[in-house]
Simulated scan of single mutants.
Amino acid sequence: MSKILVIGANGTVGTELVRLLSDQGHDVVRTTSRAPATAQDVHLNLVTGEGLAAAFAGVEAAFLLSPPGYTNQNELLNPVIDQAVASGVQKIVLMTAMGANADEAAPLRKVERHLEKSGLAYTIIRPNWFMQNFHTFWIQGILEQGKILLPVGKAKGSFIDARDIAAVAASLLTRNDLDNQEFDLTGGEALDHDEAAALLSNATGRTIVYEEVSEGAMVAQLLAAGLPQDYAHFLITILGFFKAGYSEAITPAVEAITGAKPRTFAAYAQDFKDAWKV
Rank of each mutant, 00 (worst) to 15 (best):
L94K: 06
A54F: 06
Q73E: 03
G51S: 06
N78Q: 12
F56W: 15
E104R: 11
V80E: 03
A61T: 13
A102R: 15
F56S: 06
G49V: 03
D103S: 08
V47L: 13
A53G: 11
F56Y: 15
P68I: 15
A100L: 05
G51H: 01
M98K: 12
D103H: 03
M95E: 15
D82H: 08
V89Y: 07
I92P: 06
M95W: 05
P67N: 11
E104F: 04
V93C: 01
N78C: 14
F63Q: 04
P67S: 09
L76D: 11
D103M: 02
G88V: 00
L52Q: 08
A55G: 04
V47E: 12
A62L: 12
L94D: 06
L94Y: 09
A86G: 04
P68D: 06
G51C: 03
E75R: 04
A55Q: 05
T71M: 08
L94H: 02
E60W: 10
A106Q: 13
A106Y: 14
T48Q: 04
M98I: 05
V80G: 02
V59G: 06
E75C: 00
Q73S: 12
L77G: 06
V89W: 05
E60V: 09
V85M: 04
N72D: 10
G69Y: 02
N78Y: 00
A61Q: 06
A57M: 11
N78V: 15
N72W: 07
T48L: 03
G99F: 10
V80S: 00
T96L: 08
P79I: 05
L94F: 09
N101Q: 07
V80F: 00
G99E: 04
T71S: 09
N72G: 00
M95R: 10
D82C: 02
A61V: 14
A97G: 14
I81C: 02
A84Q: 00
A61R: 15
A61L: 07
L65T: 14
M95I: 11
